[in-house]
Design a protein around this nucleic acid. Structure first.
Lengths: 190, 190
DNA sequence: GGAGTCTGTTAATGATGATTAACATCCGAG
DNA sequence: CTCGGATGTTAATCATCATTAACAGACTCC
Protein backbone atom coordinates (compact mmCIF):
# COMPACT_ATOMS: atom_id res chain seq x y z
CA UNK A 1 0.00 0.00 0.00
CA UNK A 2 2.85 2.35 -0.73
CA UNK A 3 2.55 2.93 -4.44
CA UNK A 4 -1.20 3.66 -4.62
CA UNK A 5 -0.86 6.01 -1.68
CA UNK A 6 1.42 8.28 -3.65
CA UNK A 7 -1.48 9.01 -5.93
CA UNK A 8 -3.92 9.85 -3.16
CA UNK A 9 -3.23 13.57 -3.15
CA UNK A 10 -3.55 13.85 -6.91
CA UNK A 11 -6.59 11.61 -6.84
CA UNK A 12 -8.25 13.89 -4.30
CA UNK A 13 -7.39 17.02 -6.24
CA UNK A 14 -8.87 15.54 -9.38
CA UNK A 15 -12.09 14.41 -7.74
CA UNK A 16 -12.43 17.73 -5.95
CA UNK A 17 -11.95 19.59 -9.23
CA UNK A 18 -14.83 17.75 -10.81
CA UNK A 19 -17.06 18.36 -7.84
CA UNK A 20 -16.15 22.04 -7.51
CA UNK A 21 -16.73 22.50 -11.23
CA UNK A 22 -20.15 20.94 -10.99
CA UNK A 23 -21.50 22.41 -7.76
CA UNK A 24 -19.12 25.17 -6.70
CA UNK A 25 -16.76 25.31 -3.74
CA UNK A 26 -19.43 25.94 -1.11
CA UNK A 27 -21.73 23.39 -2.69
CA UNK A 28 -19.32 20.54 -2.03
CA UNK A 29 -18.59 19.10 1.40
CA UNK A 30 -15.41 17.50 2.62
CA UNK A 31 -17.47 14.37 3.03
CA UNK A 32 -18.45 14.51 -0.65
CA UNK A 33 -14.85 14.76 -1.75
CA UNK A 34 -13.83 11.89 0.48
CA UNK A 35 -16.65 9.74 -0.86
CA UNK A 36 -15.56 10.48 -4.42
CA UNK A 37 -12.19 8.86 -3.80
CA UNK A 38 -13.48 6.05 -1.62
CA UNK A 39 -12.45 7.30 1.79
CA UNK A 40 -14.73 9.01 4.17
CA UNK A 41 -14.60 12.60 5.31
CA UNK A 42 -11.90 13.58 7.72
CA UNK A 43 -9.37 11.33 5.98
CA UNK A 44 -8.64 14.30 3.74
CA UNK A 45 -6.97 16.08 6.60
CA UNK A 46 -4.13 13.58 6.30
CA UNK A 47 -3.35 15.14 2.92
CA UNK A 48 -4.49 18.74 3.13
CA UNK A 49 -4.68 21.16 6.01
CA UNK A 50 -8.24 22.09 5.10
CA UNK A 51 -10.78 22.69 2.39
CA UNK A 52 -9.46 26.12 1.45
CA UNK A 53 -5.90 24.84 1.31
CA UNK A 54 -7.05 22.15 -1.08
CA UNK A 55 -8.63 24.72 -3.36
CA UNK A 56 -5.59 26.95 -3.10
CA UNK A 57 -3.28 24.18 -4.19
CA UNK A 58 -5.57 23.30 -7.04
CA UNK A 59 -5.71 26.85 -8.38
CA UNK A 60 -1.99 27.36 -7.89
CA UNK A 61 -1.30 24.25 -9.89
CA UNK A 62 -3.58 25.29 -12.74
CA UNK A 63 -2.23 28.83 -12.87
CA UNK A 64 1.31 27.55 -12.78
CA UNK A 65 0.70 25.11 -15.60
CA UNK A 66 -0.87 27.78 -17.77
CA UNK A 67 1.89 30.25 -17.03
CA UNK A 68 4.61 27.73 -17.72
CA UNK A 69 2.94 26.68 -20.93
CA UNK A 70 2.52 30.29 -21.91
CA UNK A 71 6.13 31.17 -21.24
CA UNK A 72 7.27 28.15 -23.21
CA UNK A 73 5.01 28.64 -26.21
CA UNK A 74 5.30 32.40 -26.51
CA UNK A 75 9.03 32.13 -26.93
CA UNK A 76 8.66 29.39 -29.49
CA UNK A 77 11.41 29.35 -32.10
CA UNK A 78 10.89 32.19 -34.57
CA UNK A 79 11.08 35.42 -32.68
CA UNK A 80 10.20 37.35 -35.81
CA UNK A 81 6.87 35.69 -36.37
CA UNK A 82 4.65 36.89 -33.58
CA UNK A 83 1.96 35.32 -35.69
CA UNK A 84 3.36 31.86 -34.96
CA UNK A 85 3.71 32.61 -31.27
CA UNK A 86 0.07 33.64 -31.08
CA UNK A 87 -0.99 30.47 -32.83
CA UNK A 88 1.03 28.45 -30.37
CA UNK A 89 -0.56 30.23 -27.41
CA UNK A 90 -3.98 29.69 -28.89
CA UNK A 91 -3.50 26.02 -29.57
CA UNK A 92 -1.99 25.48 -26.15
CA UNK A 93 -4.86 27.16 -24.36
CA UNK A 94 -7.49 25.39 -26.42
CA UNK A 95 -5.87 22.03 -25.83
CA UNK A 96 -5.83 22.70 -22.11
CA UNK A 97 -9.43 23.90 -22.03
CA UNK A 98 -10.70 20.92 -23.96
CA UNK A 99 -8.67 18.42 -21.97
CA UNK A 100 -9.44 19.84 -18.55
CA UNK A 101 -12.83 21.56 -18.64
CA UNK A 102 -13.32 21.15 -14.91
CA UNK A 103 -10.02 22.84 -14.12
CA UNK A 104 -10.80 25.74 -16.42
CA UNK A 105 -14.16 26.19 -14.78
CA UNK A 106 -12.80 26.16 -11.26
CA UNK A 107 -9.94 28.43 -12.23
CA UNK A 108 -12.43 30.90 -13.63
CA UNK A 109 -14.89 30.86 -10.77
CA UNK A 110 -13.39 30.08 -7.40
CA UNK A 111 -10.54 32.49 -6.89
CA UNK A 112 -12.54 34.42 -4.31
CA UNK A 113 -12.70 31.42 -2.03
CA UNK A 114 -8.94 31.10 -1.77
CA UNK A 115 -7.30 32.57 1.34
CA UNK A 116 -5.62 35.92 0.84
CA UNK A 117 -2.00 34.85 0.61
CA UNK A 118 -2.46 32.11 -1.95
CA UNK A 119 -4.82 34.33 -3.86
CA UNK A 120 -2.07 36.86 -4.36
CA UNK A 121 0.26 34.19 -5.71
CA UNK A 122 -2.41 32.90 -8.07
CA UNK A 123 -3.22 36.36 -9.31
CA UNK A 124 0.45 36.95 -10.00
CA UNK A 125 0.66 33.83 -12.13
CA UNK A 126 -2.51 34.76 -13.98
CA UNK A 127 -1.12 38.21 -14.63
CA UNK A 128 2.11 36.75 -16.00
CA UNK A 129 0.14 34.51 -18.31
CA UNK A 130 -1.93 37.42 -19.57
CA UNK A 131 1.21 39.49 -20.08
CA UNK A 132 2.62 36.73 -22.22
CA UNK A 133 -0.34 37.15 -24.54
CA UNK A 134 -0.22 40.93 -24.39
CA UNK A 135 3.46 40.93 -25.35
CA UNK A 136 2.79 38.83 -28.43
CA UNK A 137 -0.28 40.85 -29.35
CA UNK A 138 1.54 44.15 -29.00
CA UNK A 139 3.92 43.02 -31.72
CA UNK A 140 1.01 42.34 -34.02
CA UNK A 141 -0.80 45.55 -33.10
CA UNK A 142 1.83 48.13 -32.18
CA UNK A 143 -0.67 50.95 -32.28
CA UNK A 144 -3.10 49.34 -29.88
CA UNK A 145 -2.91 50.62 -26.28
CA UNK A 146 -1.91 47.99 -23.70
CA UNK A 147 -5.13 48.32 -21.72
CA UNK A 148 -7.08 47.40 -24.82
CA UNK A 149 -4.81 44.45 -25.49
CA UNK A 150 -5.30 43.23 -21.95
CA UNK A 151 -9.06 43.51 -22.23
CA UNK A 152 -8.93 41.73 -25.58
CA UNK A 153 -6.94 38.93 -24.00
CA UNK A 154 -9.50 38.49 -21.24
CA UNK A 155 -12.24 38.49 -23.85
CA UNK A 156 -10.51 35.76 -25.84
CA UNK A 157 -10.10 33.72 -22.66
CA UNK A 158 -13.83 34.08 -22.17
CA UNK A 159 -14.35 32.77 -25.67
CA UNK A 160 -11.95 29.86 -25.33
CA UNK A 161 -13.17 28.97 -21.86
CA UNK A 162 -16.75 28.72 -23.06
CA UNK A 163 -15.96 25.08 -23.76
CA UNK A 164 -17.34 23.70 -20.50
CA UNK A 165 -20.67 25.41 -21.22
CA UNK A 166 -21.19 24.18 -24.75
CA UNK A 167 -19.90 20.71 -24.00
CA UNK A 168 -21.05 17.85 -26.13
CA UNK A 169 -22.46 19.94 -28.93
CA UNK A 170 -19.41 19.34 -31.06
CA UNK A 171 -16.65 16.76 -31.30
CA UNK A 172 -13.43 17.89 -29.59
CA UNK A 173 -11.65 18.17 -32.91
CA UNK A 174 -14.36 20.32 -34.45
CA UNK A 175 -14.59 22.39 -31.31
CA UNK A 176 -10.87 23.06 -31.26
CA UNK A 177 -11.01 24.10 -34.88
CA UNK A 178 -13.94 26.41 -34.30
CA UNK A 179 -12.38 28.08 -31.29
CA UNK A 180 -9.09 28.58 -33.08
CA UNK A 181 -10.80 30.12 -36.08
CA UNK A 182 -12.96 32.45 -34.01
CA UNK A 183 -10.17 33.52 -31.68
CA UNK A 184 -7.78 34.22 -34.54
CA UNK A 185 -10.39 36.33 -36.25
CA UNK A 186 -11.27 38.17 -33.05
CA UNK A 187 -7.62 39.04 -32.46
CA UNK A 188 -6.80 39.96 -36.02
CA UNK A 189 -8.47 43.38 -35.97
CA UNK A 190 -7.84 45.24 -32.74
CA UNK B 1 -45.08 53.33 4.07
CA UNK B 2 -46.95 52.02 1.06
CA UNK B 3 -44.98 53.40 -1.83
CA UNK B 4 -41.49 52.42 -0.65
CA UNK B 5 -42.73 48.94 0.11
CA UNK B 6 -43.56 48.34 -3.52
CA UNK B 7 -39.85 48.54 -4.27
CA UNK B 8 -38.80 46.12 -1.57
CA UNK B 9 -38.91 43.04 -3.76
CA UNK B 10 -36.91 44.67 -6.53
CA UNK B 11 -34.55 46.14 -3.99
CA UNK B 12 -33.91 42.71 -2.53
CA UNK B 13 -33.38 41.14 -5.94
CA UNK B 14 -30.88 43.82 -6.82
CA UNK B 15 -28.91 43.53 -3.61
CA UNK B 16 -28.97 39.75 -3.83
CA UNK B 17 -27.67 39.88 -7.40
CA UNK B 18 -24.66 41.90 -6.34
CA UNK B 19 -23.94 39.59 -3.45
CA UNK B 20 -24.39 36.40 -5.49
CA UNK B 21 -22.16 37.82 -8.19
CA UNK B 22 -19.45 38.60 -5.68
CA UNK B 23 -19.51 35.54 -3.44
CA UNK B 24 -21.70 32.95 -5.12
CA UNK B 25 -25.11 31.64 -4.08
CA UNK B 26 -23.84 29.42 -1.26
CA UNK B 27 -21.43 32.08 -0.12
CA UNK B 28 -24.22 34.50 0.74
CA UNK B 29 -26.60 34.08 3.67
CA UNK B 30 -30.19 35.22 3.97
CA UNK B 31 -28.96 37.42 6.77
CA UNK B 32 -26.42 39.03 4.41
CA UNK B 33 -29.10 39.84 1.87
CA UNK B 34 -31.38 41.27 4.50
CA UNK B 35 -28.59 43.43 5.88
CA UNK B 36 -27.86 44.75 2.39
CA UNK B 37 -31.32 46.25 2.15
CA UNK B 38 -31.54 47.37 5.76
CA UNK B 39 -33.80 44.70 7.18
CA UNK B 40 -32.62 41.73 9.08
CA UNK B 41 -32.78 38.11 8.05
CA UNK B 42 -36.13 36.40 8.13
CA UNK B 43 -37.87 39.51 6.85
CA UNK B 44 -37.11 38.24 3.35
CA UNK B 45 -39.63 35.46 3.81
CA UNK B 46 -42.35 38.11 3.59
CA UNK B 47 -41.31 38.60 -0.04
CA UNK B 48 -39.92 35.28 -1.20
CA UNK B 49 -40.69 31.75 -0.20
CA UNK B 50 -37.00 30.96 0.23
CA UNK B 51 -33.48 31.51 -0.93
CA UNK B 52 -33.77 29.24 -3.94
CA UNK B 53 -37.02 30.84 -5.00
CA UNK B 54 -35.31 34.20 -4.87
CA UNK B 55 -32.53 32.97 -7.14
CA UNK B 56 -35.03 31.33 -9.46
CA UNK B 57 -36.97 34.54 -9.88
CA UNK B 58 -33.79 36.44 -10.51
CA UNK B 59 -32.60 34.08 -13.25
CA UNK B 60 -36.03 33.88 -14.81
CA UNK B 61 -36.17 37.63 -15.01
CA UNK B 62 -32.74 37.89 -16.61
CA UNK B 63 -33.41 35.11 -19.11
CA UNK B 64 -36.74 36.62 -19.98
CA UNK B 65 -35.24 40.05 -20.54
CA UNK B 66 -32.55 38.66 -22.80
CA UNK B 67 -34.98 36.53 -24.74
CA UNK B 68 -37.41 39.39 -25.18
CA UNK B 69 -34.62 41.69 -26.28
CA UNK B 70 -33.34 39.03 -28.64
CA UNK B 71 -36.72 38.42 -30.20
CA UNK B 72 -37.23 42.14 -30.64
CA UNK B 73 -33.81 42.92 -32.09
CA UNK B 74 -33.45 39.91 -34.35
CA UNK B 75 -36.59 40.84 -36.20
CA UNK B 76 -35.45 44.42 -36.55
CA UNK B 77 -36.74 46.13 -39.69
CA UNK B 78 -34.79 44.88 -42.70
CA UNK B 79 -35.36 41.18 -43.01
CA UNK B 80 -32.92 41.01 -45.90
CA UNK B 81 -29.95 42.29 -43.98
CA UNK B 82 -29.11 39.55 -41.53
CA UNK B 83 -25.99 41.61 -41.07
CA UNK B 84 -28.00 44.36 -39.43
CA UNK B 85 -29.88 41.92 -37.25
CA UNK B 86 -26.61 40.47 -35.99
CA UNK B 87 -25.31 43.92 -35.21
CA UNK B 88 -28.46 44.66 -33.28
CA UNK B 89 -28.16 41.46 -31.29
CA UNK B 90 -24.52 42.22 -30.58
CA UNK B 91 -25.14 45.77 -29.44
CA UNK B 92 -28.07 44.69 -27.31
CA UNK B 93 -26.14 41.97 -25.56
CA UNK B 94 -23.11 44.20 -25.01
CA UNK B 95 -25.26 46.97 -23.62
CA UNK B 96 -26.88 44.53 -21.21
CA UNK B 97 -23.58 43.01 -20.15
CA UNK B 98 -21.96 46.37 -19.51
CA UNK B 99 -24.99 47.75 -17.70
CA UNK B 100 -25.67 44.71 -15.53
CA UNK B 101 -22.40 42.87 -14.96
CA UNK B 102 -23.70 41.27 -11.77
CA UNK B 103 -26.75 39.86 -13.50
CA UNK B 104 -24.64 38.43 -16.31
CA UNK B 105 -22.35 36.79 -13.84
CA UNK B 106 -25.13 35.22 -11.83
CA UNK B 107 -26.93 34.15 -14.98
CA UNK B 108 -23.76 32.43 -16.15
CA UNK B 109 -22.88 30.69 -12.90
CA UNK B 110 -25.80 29.86 -10.70
CA UNK B 111 -28.25 27.90 -12.82
CA UNK B 112 -27.35 24.69 -11.00
CA UNK B 113 -28.66 26.08 -7.73
CA UNK B 114 -32.12 26.68 -9.06
CA UNK B 115 -34.78 24.07 -8.24
CA UNK B 116 -35.59 21.68 -11.06
CA UNK B 117 -38.82 23.16 -12.30
CA UNK B 118 -37.66 26.75 -12.59
CA UNK B 119 -34.42 25.51 -14.07
CA UNK B 120 -36.27 23.97 -16.97
CA UNK B 121 -38.11 27.22 -17.63
CA UNK B 122 -34.86 29.18 -17.52
CA UNK B 123 -33.13 26.76 -19.84
CA UNK B 124 -35.98 27.06 -22.28
CA UNK B 125 -35.64 30.83 -22.37
CA UNK B 126 -31.90 30.57 -22.79
CA UNK B 127 -32.37 28.13 -25.63
CA UNK B 128 -34.80 30.48 -27.35
CA UNK B 129 -32.32 33.30 -27.04
CA UNK B 130 -29.53 31.19 -28.50
CA UNK B 131 -31.80 30.08 -31.34
CA UNK B 132 -32.45 33.71 -32.15
CA UNK B 133 -28.74 34.13 -32.76
CA UNK B 134 -28.42 30.85 -34.60
CA UNK B 135 -31.23 31.80 -36.96
CA UNK B 136 -29.53 35.05 -37.87
CA UNK B 137 -26.14 33.40 -38.20
CA UNK B 138 -27.47 30.64 -40.42
CA UNK B 139 -28.50 33.28 -42.91
CA UNK B 140 -24.99 34.65 -42.96
CA UNK B 141 -23.39 31.21 -43.12
CA UNK B 142 -25.79 28.88 -44.89
CA UNK B 143 -23.14 26.19 -45.27
CA UNK B 144 -22.29 26.03 -41.60
CA UNK B 145 -23.93 23.17 -39.67
CA UNK B 146 -26.32 24.26 -36.88
CA UNK B 147 -24.31 22.54 -34.14
CA UNK B 148 -21.33 24.62 -35.09
CA UNK B 149 -23.41 27.78 -35.12
CA UNK B 150 -24.72 26.98 -31.67
CA UNK B 151 -21.24 26.40 -30.33
CA UNK B 152 -20.09 29.62 -31.97
CA UNK B 153 -22.93 31.48 -30.28
CA UNK B 154 -21.95 30.12 -26.87
CA UNK B 155 -18.37 31.09 -27.58
CA UNK B 156 -19.36 34.65 -28.45
CA UNK B 157 -21.41 34.85 -25.26
CA UNK B 158 -18.28 33.82 -23.41
CA UNK B 159 -16.41 36.63 -25.10
CA UNK B 160 -19.08 39.25 -24.44
CA UNK B 161 -19.67 38.12 -20.89
CA UNK B 162 -15.99 38.45 -20.04
CA UNK B 163 -16.84 42.01 -19.07
CA UNK B 164 -17.26 41.38 -15.37
CA UNK B 165 -13.80 39.84 -15.26
CA UNK B 166 -11.89 42.60 -17.02
CA UNK B 167 -13.83 45.36 -15.31
CA UNK B 168 -12.21 48.72 -14.91
CA UNK B 169 -9.43 48.17 -17.39
CA UNK B 170 -11.25 50.14 -20.03
CA UNK B 171 -13.94 52.83 -20.15
CA UNK B 172 -17.39 51.41 -20.91
CA UNK B 173 -17.44 53.09 -24.29
CA UNK B 174 -14.08 51.68 -25.31
CA UNK B 175 -15.01 48.28 -23.92
CA UNK B 176 -18.25 48.17 -25.90
CA UNK B 177 -16.36 49.09 -29.02
CA UNK B 178 -13.72 46.44 -28.44
CA UNK B 179 -16.24 43.71 -27.77
CA UNK B 180 -18.28 44.61 -30.81
CA UNK B 181 -15.21 44.57 -33.03
CA UNK B 182 -13.94 41.27 -31.71
CA UNK B 183 -17.32 39.55 -31.80
CA UNK B 184 -18.05 40.70 -35.31
CA UNK B 185 -14.70 39.41 -36.48
CA UNK B 186 -15.12 36.11 -34.64
CA UNK B 187 -18.49 35.55 -36.29
CA UNK B 188 -17.47 36.65 -39.74
CA UNK B 189 -15.58 33.51 -40.66
CA UNK B 190 -17.35 30.38 -39.52
C1' DG C 1 9.85 -8.01 16.92
C1' DG C 2 8.89 -3.51 18.09
C1' DA C 3 8.83 1.84 17.61
C1' DG C 4 7.32 5.16 14.55
C1' DT C 5 5.10 7.00 10.62
C1' DC C 6 1.18 7.01 7.42
C1' DT C 7 -3.59 6.65 6.56
C1' DG C 8 -7.96 5.70 7.95
C1' DT C 9 -12.11 5.24 10.96
C1' DT C 10 -15.87 6.77 13.80
C1' DA C 11 -17.44 10.06 17.54
C1' DA C 12 -17.41 14.70 19.32
C1' DT C 13 -17.40 19.87 18.91
C1' DG C 14 -18.82 24.35 17.44
C1' DA C 15 -20.31 27.33 13.82
C1' DT C 16 -23.11 28.85 10.53
C1' DG C 17 -27.35 29.18 8.32
C1' DA C 18 -32.11 28.29 6.39
C1' DT C 19 -36.53 28.21 7.94
C1' DT C 20 -40.38 28.77 11.22
C1' DA C 21 -42.82 30.62 15.49
C1' DA C 22 -44.63 34.11 18.26
C1' DC C 23 -45.11 38.45 18.87
C1' DA C 24 -45.28 43.88 17.40
C1' DT C 25 -46.45 48.00 14.23
C1' DC C 26 -48.45 50.54 10.98
C1' DC C 27 -52.06 51.87 7.84
C1' DG C 28 -55.95 52.00 5.09
C1' DA C 29 -60.92 50.52 4.84
C1' DG C 30 -65.37 50.13 6.72
C1' DC D 1 -62.47 53.45 16.27
C1' DT D 2 -61.03 48.90 15.09
C1' DC D 3 -60.08 44.88 12.04
C1' DG D 4 -57.07 42.81 8.81
C1' DG D 5 -53.24 42.60 5.99
C1' DA D 6 -48.61 43.73 5.03
C1' DT D 7 -43.91 43.96 7.13
C1' DG D 8 -40.70 43.45 10.60
C1' DT D 9 -38.43 41.76 14.85
C1' DT D 10 -36.25 38.44 17.85
C1' DA D 11 -35.92 33.73 19.66
C1' DA D 12 -36.29 28.96 18.62
C1' DT D 13 -35.43 24.72 15.63
C1' DC D 14 -32.96 21.48 12.88
C1' DA D 15 -29.47 20.53 9.44
C1' DT D 16 -25.30 20.61 7.50
C1' DC D 17 -20.40 21.05 7.86
C1' DA D 18 -15.61 21.93 8.72
C1' DT D 19 -12.50 20.62 11.89
C1' DT D 20 -10.52 17.96 15.82
C1' DA D 21 -10.13 13.83 19.06
C1' DA D 22 -9.23 9.27 20.11
C1' DC D 23 -8.27 5.17 18.52
C1' DA D 24 -6.50 1.32 15.11
C1' DG D 25 -4.20 -1.31 11.30
C1' DA D 26 -0.14 -1.64 8.27
C1' DC D 27 4.35 -1.18 6.56
C1' DT D 28 9.31 0.40 7.20
C1' DC D 29 13.47 0.48 9.30
C1' DC D 30 16.40 -0.97 12.90
Amino acid sequence: MKTPTRNRRAEILEAAADLFAARGFHGVSIEDIGAAVGVSGPALYRHFSGKEALLAEMLLDISERLREQGARLATTADPDTAEAALDALLSGHIEFALTHPALIRVHERELDNVPEQARRAIRRLQRLYVEEWVTVLSELHPACPPARLRAATHAVFGLLNSTPRSAGELAPEAMADLLRTMARAALSRL
